[in-house]
Design a protein around this nucleic acid. Structure first.
Lengths: 363, 363
DNA sequence: CTGAAAGCGCTTACAG
DNA sequence: CTGAAAGCGCTTACAG
């Protein structure tokens, strides 16, 4: 009479092998390499596993012995949980997830916390992943150094752009140019530019003109080039533009900066922002101030996240393919992009209701 | 003359130990248990590690030997990447991320794919995690069985509710009652109820009255109880309500169902939905049909996701604390909730612009 | 087709 | 405070 094994006694591959009287390699082969044993034996082993409550080889042990973790990691700006309140980050994640699910590879969100006690380096080194995607991090973020020194494949999304490091982004210069050209074509001659992290010092409010010469972030420089392209094409000069820096990349930060900007003596007739989130804040500020958009103020966003089409007025913005960017980054991490290590997507203007021709100057 | 070790020669703890002439245990202690060796030696080891480009103990090897994976997993309805287009799921994720980052634990998104070839079971068994959160899965989803049989701590969010399994949700019965009471108080006497996954058969369109008696999903039953509470309180009967099932839980699905619903001969004056996503679809359908909301049609959502306050008209809805739910689930997984294994949050009505008194019946 | 053996890179009592 | 040894649960040539 066979003793029915208690469910809990089979925790490992070894247990199962012992139970069946075969070697552990055979059990492993039953799970991993069907061609290494007879179909009947395999079926028998798999059935016994099911009956004994053995769910299959331990993923961690397998990862160690195979040298593959079966997961890629994602590191975001700021704190991990902030990523979910930034619609652009959510779309990047969706793209990463798409690539991962197709490859049956896990997507590990690396638990970077708010307190800057070096948590980033620790958690990045502690992440059991084969590769790492970093989204929109400042050049000098400790997470960047940590990821690079870990020696796993790393891809940067949007920022920073570093020599030799795989990179996915969109055409920031064209995005800036197209946005400004749209406003110039609408005859706007006083344009406020509202950005985030334009300077390492993190100003809040208007930036001194000199900031342009000192711009250290590559994207900021690319955008300045784009503005320059637009200004030149329309025979305008830099005095057309005034730059402002928001304290945070969200509607609240955008609203705060916009309130300041809209109280200027010679206030802009149009505001160009670095993200739809900021632009939504501008919309809110204008509403609070009783300034009608687009009649009295044009607002143009950046990114074209879903909420941009749903706010009132709907936001004219520059579309960039965020999901595709995430997906491309994922494919690089998964080794599916061949030799392409630098991918830059084009952008396009999306006309909606938040921009209109500048009103003739009253005086 | 000392030979400077090439950076790449130190890949493991053993390498570093050999380089320094100490035992591997000592190096391990330098990283993990400062009290086990002198501060100077520790500093010396850590410095050598830095110089040699050793990023610290391999996370996978550590996980195996410690018996802790340092990560919890999340499994969503449908395909992983769909989760990011459902604002409710994103907020749940934000809550999970909050709990994880605080505990410096990774959050692994389990790569469940669209094709139903048993991928769910495989990827769940292959996820290197200490615990698993499952969000809004049908009782009979294969992922549920796989998670439970794996033997790691599992928490269900919203669905399913299973005996003995930790569970986080909100008060579905009260949510249904409050929503319907609001409409009844506004004198609506013909109410369309638009849900998702009300039945295992996944109808599309109007449900036969009999469905109520056969409702198998616990939440559906809870909501039916809630409607009953409201009807009784207002001395109305079930004929007040007509039930419809959407093919998908998104604006497109909601719009499709709403178009059908709004062409009914005796069309409802109000629509109550199971999610804000569905309600947004109803808003779009009403707009297409030239039906004014709330003047000619009241619409009430469910969840109170961020976009609900931003659409036009802004959505009256039932607020449930999605981030808190995610966070509570995370804390259960991380063993931080003590003995609380079942958490049900209260809900509340959020009045906005999509509901108004029913117009007096014209005839 | 099967099994004994080495190895994946660590941690942790435990003896000194 | 330090180090030799066992063990975490697997996979993978390799010899039969």
């Amino acid at each position: 009479m066979k003793v029915k094994p208690s469910k809990t006694s089979v925790r490992t591959l070894d247990d199962l092998a012992a139970l069946l009287g075969v070697s552990r390699a055979t059990v492993s082969n039953a799970f991993n390499r069907p061609d290494q044993l007879s179909a009947k034996l395999r079926e028998q082993i798999l059935r016994a596993a099911r009956e004994a409550g053995y769910a299959g080889p331990d993923p961690t042990a397998r990862a160690l012995s195979r040298g593959e973790r079966g997961a890629v990691g994602a590191v975001f700006t700021e704190q991990l949980s902030y990523a979910f309140s930034d619609p652009a980050a959510v779309l990047i994640l969706e793209g990463l997830a798409r690539a991962c699910e197709e490859a049956e590879t896990g997507l590990l969100l690396v638990p970077v916390a708010a307190d800057t006690d070096g948590n980033a380096g620790r958690v990045i080194n502690g992440a059991a992943v084969d590769a790492l995607a970093l989204y929109s991090l400042p050049d000098d973020d400790p997470a960047v150094a940590a990821a690079l020194s870990r020696g796993v494949t790393t891809v940067m999304i949007d920022q920073p752009l570093l020599p030799g490091v795989p990179y996915v982004s969109h055409d920031h210069r064209a995005a800036a140019r197209i946005a400004l050209e749209h406003l110039l074509e609408l005859s706007h001659r006083r344009v406020g530019v509202l950005g985030y992290r334009l300077t390492p010092q993190r100003h809040r409010g208007e930036l001194p003109r000199a900031f342009q010469r000192a711009a250290v972030y590559r994207h900021t420089r690319a955008r300045l080039k784009g503005y320059e392209d637009a200004l030149r094409a329309h025979k305008r000069d830099w005095k057309t533009l005034r730059f402002f820096e928001s304290a945070s990349n969200d509607p609240a930060g955008g609203a705060t900066s916009a309130l300041e900007l809209l109280e200027l003596p010679d206030r802009p007739t149009a505001i160009l922002t670095d993200s739809d989130q900021l632009a939504i804040g501008v919309l809110a500020a204008a509403r609070d101030l009783g300034i009608r958009v687009p009649e009295e103020l044009s607002v143009i966003g950046m990114d074209d996240v879903p909420v941009a089409s749903v706010v009132t007025p709907s936001l004219t913005t520059i579309h960039q393919p965020l999901v595709k960017k995430g997906e491309a980054a994922g494919k690089i991490l998964l080794g599916q992009q061949g030799r392409r290590r630098h991918i830059v997507f084009p952008v396009e203007l999306v006309l909606r209701d938040s921009t209109a021709p500048a009103k003739r100057r009253r005086r």
